Amino acid sequence: MKIAAFVPVKLKNERTPGKNTKRFDDGTALITCFLRTLVHVPEIDELYVFCSDEAIKNYLIPGVKFLKRPEFLDTNQATPQDIIEAFMKQIEADVYLVCHCTSPFVKAERISECIGKVCKEGYDSAFTAEKIQRLMWYNGEPLNFDAANVPRTQELPAYFNEVSAAYVFKKETFLSLHRRIGLKPYICEVSGIECIDIDYPEDFEIANAIYMHLICK
């Protein structure tokens, strides 16, 4: 069973310009930091960075291949499904992983766990997610509790917020459903700093502080 993983990257981002190659204070780029985790996932047979700009090669490490993608995948009109489909047309595999470097602190063991659930335990897909049990409001009304009888948070229903470090799926799952999460997914729970997801400049500043603390310990 061949397992292929890829990190989709575009070098121009609207919300946080250049975030994928933005450097922490020690000079390490975000994408490089994440690739250092992925190369330690033993189940992965082939690992790619899927990018339209060959300048990304400057940030790769041994064990990672560059795969050029069409420039139209960098536009706002391109969907995650379009990107996955384009990769699958170029690289043949039985199981695919889509990994996003904007969640740089997810451990390699979590990704291995996702792969194992899909390859060995009958799940058609798996993904990393943060478990949320909080008092939620929507449009001025309590969403998941009775305001007149407020429960303990541990008694609230659990919701799961996707953490984009890893989406694992079988080839046939995507081909039949045209999506990265199938009908029988395994949710791999992550917590703490593993839940960090970089969307905005302030998110990167938080990630930088955590990263620098970790390497200076």
Results as ranks from 00 to 15, higher is better:
74 D>R: 13
84 I>G: 08
48 Y>T: 01
123 Y>E: 14
76 N>V: 10
51 C>K: 09
112 S>I: 01
110 R>W: 03
88 M>F: 11
130 E>G: 12
114 C>F: 00
32 T>W: 03
85 E>F: 08
104 P>Y: 09
51 C>M: 10
67 L>H: 04
105 F>N: 05
44 I>G: 03
124 D>V: 10
52 S>P: 05
49 V>R: 00
45 D>Y: 04
48 Y>D: 05
90 Q>N: 10
103 S>G: 08
36 R>A: 09
84 I>K: 12
31 I>Q: 02
81 Q>C: 11
106 V>M: 06
37 T>A: 04
121 E>N: 12
52 S>N: 14
90 Q>I: 00
129 A>K: 01
79 T>P: 08
93 A>M: 10
81 Q>M: 14
53 D>E: 12
71 E>A: 15
53 D>W: 04
99 C>V: 09
131 K>R: 14
60 L>S: 11
113 E>W: 10
49 V>D: 00
80 P>T: 13
47 L>Y: 00
63 G>W: 09
71 E>S: 15
38 L>I: 00
69 R>T: 14
54 E>D: 15
37 T>M: 09
38 L>H: 01
50 F>R: 12
85 E>N: 13
92 E>Y: 05
130 E>V: 00
127 F>I: 04
95 V>N: 07
51 C>P: 04
30 L>F: 11
130 E>H: 09
75 T>H: 08
75 T>F: 04
81 Q>I: 13
117 K>I: 02
108 A>R: 10
65 K>P: 01
43 E>K: 09
55 A>L: 06
79 T>G: 09
122 G>I: 07
29 A>G: 10
88 M>K: 11
38 L>A: 08
54 E>V: 01
108 A>D: 09
106 V>D: 08
51 C>W: 05
123 Y>D: 14
78 A>S: 15
65 K>L: 06
103 S>M: 08
79 T>R: 15
97 L>F: 12
29 A>N: 11
54 E>G: 06
99 C>G: 07
31 I>E: 02
70 P>A: 14
113 E>H: 12
120 K>S: 13
